[in-house]
């Protein structure tokens, strides 16, 4: 077909590519297998959560549901029992939201100011301070669990409020544990902002907070989005701190999910368990989808180059 023209003029323009070359087959084949491997459990969870118990007993794990029912989802959200409480995951969800929102806002607010100060307002000992902070990121959580229990109990008693077992106690713990990595993140980002911009703002008479709010903040949307992704997923998925520092009424969603799935009362309701797990995973999933777009936009908004 193209032979005639090719032989007349010789190679010209883009080199034709073979669609089914061995390389392509290997590449797409591997990608397909890996994708299936990762997606299959999710598929099983979704189809199981939409089946009724009789259908599940048939044992066809991969079969799509014959009778689609949303009953398990409703039950997981509002009726599933953990111990004596039978109000489903909904309570855990609202607990998690109450823990998440202040934790994310507090930790990011403090860490961004920390990072900004460490990057732009070097003071005597700032490097030492930073090193200690980063070192904190490498200390295993297990070591700190019990001391924090004591600290929360004692300071709570000292201030006359109940910190241990309350949502605010957990908020404080999340804020503190987010500090090293977030401070590092923000410090590195603010270090990459041209120093001359900071100098220009100082000549223009802006102070510590003036430069932070008027110059640095508007330029750092991308890094804030990254920090939000990190914190929302981290705090939402946290189980360890949630189970230790709260009590049954204030358990976050993850802890409650565990209790629902592991409490054995008669028949094991796989469909409800699957629905409950999917519900718990929805928030981080939503964050990835929403912020992915914001992230790209944030980078595109970029700084002025020379």
């Amino acid at each position: 077909m193209a032979d005639a023209t090719v032989s007349m003029t010789g190679p010209r323009g883009p080199k034709p590519k073979r669609r089914f070359s061995p390389t392509n087959i290997m590449l797409y084949g591997t990608l397909f297998v890996v994708a299936v491997y990762y997606a299959l459990p999710l598929y099983v969870m979704i189809v199981t959560s939409l089946k009724g118990m009789p259908e599940i007993r048939l044992g066809n794990v991969f079969a799509p549901p014959v009778d689609i029912t949303f009953e398990p989802w409703v039950k997981a959200w509002a009726e599933a029992c953990t111990g004596i409480n039978c109000d489903g995951l909904s309570r855990g969800f609202w607990n998690s939201v109450q823990i998440l929102v202040p934790s994310v806002i507090l930790s990011i607010a403090i860490a961004s100011v920390n990072g900004y100060a460490l990057a732009n307002w070097k003071f005597k000992g700032s490097e030492v301070f930073f090193t200690i902070l980063i070192f904190g990121a490498f200390i295993p959580y297990q070591v700190m669990i019990y001391p924090i229990v004591i600290i929360l109990r004692e300071t709570g008693g000292f201030l006359g409020v109940q910190l241990m077992g309350s949502i605010w106690g957990l908020v404080i713990v999340h804020t503190i544990f987010g500090m090293p990595i977030l401070t590092l993140l923000f410090r590195n980002y603010f270090t990459s902002v041209p120093e001359e911009l900071f100098k220009a703002a100082r000549v223009d008479g802006a102070g510590f907070w003036g430069i932070y709010f008027r110059i640095m903040l508007p330029m750092s949307l991308p890094i804030f989005v990254v920090a939000i992704i990190l914190q929302v997923t981290g705090i939402w998925n946290d189980f360890l701190f949630g189970v230790i520092y709260t009590k049954p009424e204030t358990y976050p969603m993850t802890v409650q999910l565990n209790n629902i799935v592991n409490s054995v009362q008669g028949v094991k309701e796989y469909n409800v368990n699957m629905a409950a797990t999917l519900l718990t995973g929805l928030v981080p999933l939503a964050i990835y989808f929403i912020s992915g777009k914001l992230f790209v936009r944030g980078i595109a908004a970029g700084a002025v180059k020379g």
Binding site: P194, E196, L197, K199, A200, A201, R202, V203, D204, G205, A206, R214, I215, P218, M219, G302, A303, V304, G306
Partner: peptide
């Protein structure tokens, strides 16, 4: 710096990217 009665021009211009030219001048 702001109290010294100086104005400074930088090599990389150091304009505030999120402000308009007018905003830059009046900051």
């Amino acid at each position: 710096p702001s109290e010294r009665g100086i104005g400074m021009v930088f090599q990389s211009y150091a304009l505030y990217p999120q402000m308009t030219v007018e905003g830059n001048l009046s900051f």
